[in-house]
Amino acid sequence: MIEVKNIYKKFGRKKVLNGVSFTAEKGKITCLIGVNGVGKTTILNAIMNLTPINHGEITMGDEKISDRSFEKITFIPDAITMIPSMTIAESMQFMQDFYDSWNQKRATELLGFFKLKETEQISDLSKGNTAKVNLLLGLALDVDFLLMDEPFSGIDIFSREQIADVFSSHLVEDRGVIITTHEINDIEHLIDKVILLDDGVVLKAFNAEDVRENEGKSVVDVMREVYQA
């Protein structure tokens, strides 16, 4: 389990996170929702120790997250973070060189799943395919937790569908996923937990199936209530 406990973050005078707490469990898809600039990416960066927080604590299974955790938890940012002149094959080799948790079999499977050609250079890929390579490099790691920042933004509908299919496949099965998004159309029926954020705080956290079952509301219904209140 990943536990985010009461974290605060300021950029200069701008308060981005004002005491955010939530948990994300293994085997569940947790979705952080909020408009752009609400601090979703900052939360993921903070979890991965890519930006210092001013207050609060983040743990994974009772341990602080550090470089020792990175065989267990990985982050897929919203744009690819490989050197553009590298080919897909070279990027995969890079990952294999540095990660014990790299699963070459799954990587090959993902190449097929996304219909990608290994010999292509990253700088030559379409937006959609770049997003898929980005996802591939994270998904092929045998980690417990996957953090994904806006995996659906700025790409075509067919790529979005393909990426959404990842979440119903064995590729994320039994892993914990934290995903950020500002619109949930692509994955509304796929997510387990929903965390609604605004102004650097959690407005509401709930299980998607529970509100459907107990209140007969869709996730968007709840969002409407919370954000328009």
Binding site: F167, H170, E173, L190
Partner: peptide, 9 residues
């Protein structure tokens, strides 16, 4: 899950 495109859970 894969067929219906739903969460395995």
């Amino acid at each position: 899950a894969a067929k219906l495109k739903i969460n395995p859970n």
